[in-house]
Amino acid sequence: MEIENQHPFQIDLGHLMAFNPHHQFPSLPSSREDLVSECLQKGTELVQSIANDLFNLPSTEDRDGPLVRLPPPTTRLPREKPLPKPKPPTKWELFAQKKGIKNRKKDKRVYDEQTHTWKRRHGYDRANDEDNIPIIEAKMTDESGEDPFAARRADKKKRVEKQEKNRLQNLKQAAKVGALPSHIQLAATALPITGTQAAPKKITKDELGNVAGMAATSTASGGKFDKKFAGEKPAKHQGKYRKFLPVVEGTGIGSREREQTEKVLSRLISKNSHEILNVNKAVNMYNVKKEKKQRNQGKSSSMSSKLKPNKKLQKKPLKKGSSKQGKAK
């Protein structure tokens, strides 16, 4: 024990870890219980030595108990992920540095010339909004037939596109160093070998099926005598989608095309056609209007008695109908 006291244990307060490198079992204890109790006893010594250091650290009283500031751990453990890399400067930042341009803070509120009020610089209802100019004064240099508003819009669009291009370029540079922001991914939309500019579309299952179906039926026999592959399904839409009646006059179907078109035409053209005028609806509308009128009159004169006969009049046809039904039964 005395020797051990002279050689203090290795203590890492940052991890609350203690290590006793001097202990050695002369002979393993015969029973498990002895072994455990000895281990616990040695462990207690170690914990006590950590506590000796820990409780002597300067502490601040908190509501939950004394708070102690731990020293940084001395045992070095491997990191979980590599150190984050610093972001390389953008092209503008490089340029600004070369020219000695410094960022200045801009006010959030700006005076709006049009409305003579103070407005936000950016966002909805912003001051001096380019997209929201009611009048552009004509100049002598203006060419006729040119829309100055459209020109402005196109110009703005071009600027936005240019900025987007610059942003992508800067991100590419950052990706090369491995300092891309964690929430941004650069995804390849086309292989560089093909040199295509447009992004290739992802082919869906349905589209593939359609193409396969088309290919299968594009033989002279419409795929009727072709060999079927294992697992090949019959085409979903067999035959035609739309029927066109023959235009040439003849017997049977030939005359039906004429009938069809004539029917549509007569419906459109004839003014007094009963098909167009919905009699039931018209009568209803008339009745409702009349009723409203009477009601309004009744209110103004505060005579409710006028409503009664009207109601009876309306109910009459209903009663008749019911009686008829009764007879039929």
Binding site: L16, M17, H23, L46
Partner: peptide, 9 residues
Amino acid sequence: KPFITFIGE
């Protein structure tokens, strides 16, 4: 937060 102790050479 646990204490961690190692015993033995």
